[in-house]
Amino acid sequence: MQTSAPGVTFLERHEGVVLKAYRCPAGIWTIGAGLTAASGVVKPRAGMVISRAEATGLLQKALRQNYEPAVKRTMPGAKQHEFDAGVSFHFNTGAIGRASWVQHWIDRNWGRVEHNLAAWNKGGGRVLPGLTRRRAEEYDLLADGDYGTGPARVEAGLATMVVELDRAELDAAHAGFKALGYNVGDSDLGFTIGGVRAFQRDHDLTVDGIVGRATLSTLQRMLDARAKAKQPAAAAAVGGTESTVQAGAEIDPALAWVGPAILTFAALFALWLAWRYRDAIAAKLAPRFPKLARYLWSI
């Protein structure tokens, strides 16, 4: 048994499909339905663009190689829609072999299946609304064969939303865009299409006015770079306190190395950050030095 066409569509709807390679918040090149080089089916690189059909084909190949075999072993005798739900869960968590809801599914104890499946809704130690919604839809698929529809939301003047954000997530994204200097409005339905396109253009993304995985991942990455950039400056300030010692005051020779060491560490840390977040630097340089920015985006 393999994932059905509706099952692939269900998974793509939840994962999002990006046709131009982008860096995830951790800096790993990603394309399609969240595929990285670790998938074994593609090696995303700067500037890589694929078609929609290629994205689906790569996802199907990754499922056959890396996910479907485990679901076959763990869910013997599954009907097609049950198998598809298991694949979606395993693709997202990698935990089909240890998830307690599976045994309850084997026992046909649907109340426990729903309860235990819903528990897989946390990331970083906190409940994530997006995962709560996904687990609920996976249960509907598992129990009732309901693949859902999930049409993209389009509002006049606003960017198309292909991921669902709750109010807290939406507010955080609004604040993030504005902190980076992009006016995306303050609608509780989304972001202005002009602001989103400006952000996409400045960060070497596909300028399509669609808010999905690539745009939100890049937003988070730029905010992370902004926050981390303040750390070397803080360390340098600490290291520089030696110069504020009152004239004539003696410095313990055993501690004389501390200030220079902190400054050296701050400088090395700043260089490491500059390399790790070179795409953020490229976005800043692009208006005046487009060739240099293009080079930084390419490595």
Rank of each mutant, 00 (worst) to 15 (best):
T241M: 08
T9D: 06
P232G: 14
F269H: 12
L255T: 11
G195M: 01
N92D: 05
T132I: 02
G157P: 02
W257Y: 14
L11R: 03
Y22N: 08
G57R: 10
E137G: 01
A55C: 01
Q2K: 09
V245T: 05
L189R: 09
F289P: 01
D204L: 04
Y277L: 02
G27C: 12
A37R: 13
A247P: 02
W110N: 11
Q60P: 08
V258C: 14
A235S: 03
G7M: 13
R167A: 12
Q65F: 10
A280V: 14
D140H: 05
A156S: 12
A37F: 05
A270L: 09
I262H: 09
L219E: 00
R221A: 00
D140L: 13
G40N: 07
V87L: 04
F83P: 02
A267R: 12
A95T: 00
I299S: 08
P76F: 08
K230L: 02
P44L: 14
G111P: 02
R153M: 11
M161R: 14
D279N: 04
A70M: 10
D279G: 04
Y182T: 00
S217K: 04
T56S: 12
R276P: 04
R98W: 13
L170N: 06
E54I: 03
A266C: 12
T74L: 06
L58W: 07
P129Q: 06
R108E: 09
R213E: 09
R226Y: 02
P287T: 08
I96W: 14
L268N: 11
S243I: 11
G148A: 15
T206E: 13
A266Q: 04
R288H: 05
L128M: 13
R278L: 01
G125R: 06
R153G: 01
L170T: 10
